[in-house]
């Protein structure tokens, strides 16, 4: 068995009131870091949603560690996603009534793992927000929130880490900090990283790119 983490083949999606789009075939190996590039509205978020199993494709297949995600049904797919995929959204969403620590513990328990406070603390410290573990989301800055989002996405050591425009709402300093931490921690946790962005500040940090412009419609 090879070290394929993500395989996209013949994938197409049809919007309810919009066009049908075909995505390019591509594969990502273990430990690879790739950038998904495309203009706004090019289908970057749609592709990430399809990879994570949030949406259903019109046709085609998404395989993560050789498992076709659409062959899994209901809670089986949910569990697989929780354990194998970490997802960082453009806006960092958290449960408002839970602290940073509790939000990350929730990710562990929903994936069916025992909560591990020490592991969370280590990760938060690595992301330089160890002192914020008891803070509530509304008490943090955007840059801090995005770092908590990285911690939550990586705590279950997923095979694939997906980030959808993770730096879009950050200033230059925070963009550099968050991006570096994202790359470092993904590497440290052995996760394959796929970042969708149209942020030019990010492009220089990646050698592998997947272009989504001019897709067949």
């Amino acid at each position: 068995m090879d070290n394929s983490i993500l395989l996209i083949s013949d994938l197409a999606f049809e919007y309810k009131l919009g066009p049908k789009i075909h995505f390019p075939n591509f594969e990502m190996k273990a430990g690879e870091h790739s950038l998904l590039l495309g203009d706004s509205g090019s289908g970057k978020s749609t592709l990430l949603n399809l990879i994570a199993g949030f949406s259903k494709p019109l046709q085609g297949e998404v395989r993560i560690q050789h498992q076709s995600i659409y062959q899994l049904q209901g809670s089986g797919r949910d569990k697989f996603r929780a354990q194998q995929i970490g997802f960082i959204f453009q806006e960092a969403h958290f449960l408002k009534n839970l602290t940073v620590m509790e939000n990350i513990q929730l990710a562990q328990s929903l994936a069916g793992f025992e909560t591990d406070k020490e592991a969370i603390e280590r990760l938060l410290n690595y992301l330089q927000i160890g002192d914020k573990k008891k803070a509530f989301p509304h008490e943090l800055s955007r840059g801090q929130l995005q770092r908590v989002a990285i911690a939550r996405a990586l705590i279950n050591k997923p095979a694939l880490l997906i980030a959808d425009e993770p730096t879009a709402s950050l200033d230059d300093n925070n963009t550099t900090l968050v991006l570096n931490l994202l790359l470092d921690t993904a590497q440290q946790y052995g996760s394959t990283l796929l970042i969708a962005t149209h942020d030019k500040r990010v492009k220089d940090s990646f050698s592998n790119t997947i272009q989504l412009n001019n897709l067949q419609r």
């Binding site: 994570a52 949030f54 209901g74 809670s75 949910d78 569990k79 996603r81 929780a82 354990q83 997802f87 959204f89 969403h93 958290f94 449960l95 408002k96 929730l106 990710a107 929903l110 994936a111 069916g112 939550r152």
Partner: peptide, 14 residues
């Protein structure tokens, strides 16, 4: 909150 929980692995039944 509910959507985040779904994204983190919570099933619809959950």
């Amino acid at each position: 909150d509910l959507a985040i929980m779904r994204s983190l692995g919570a099933s619809q039944i959950k």
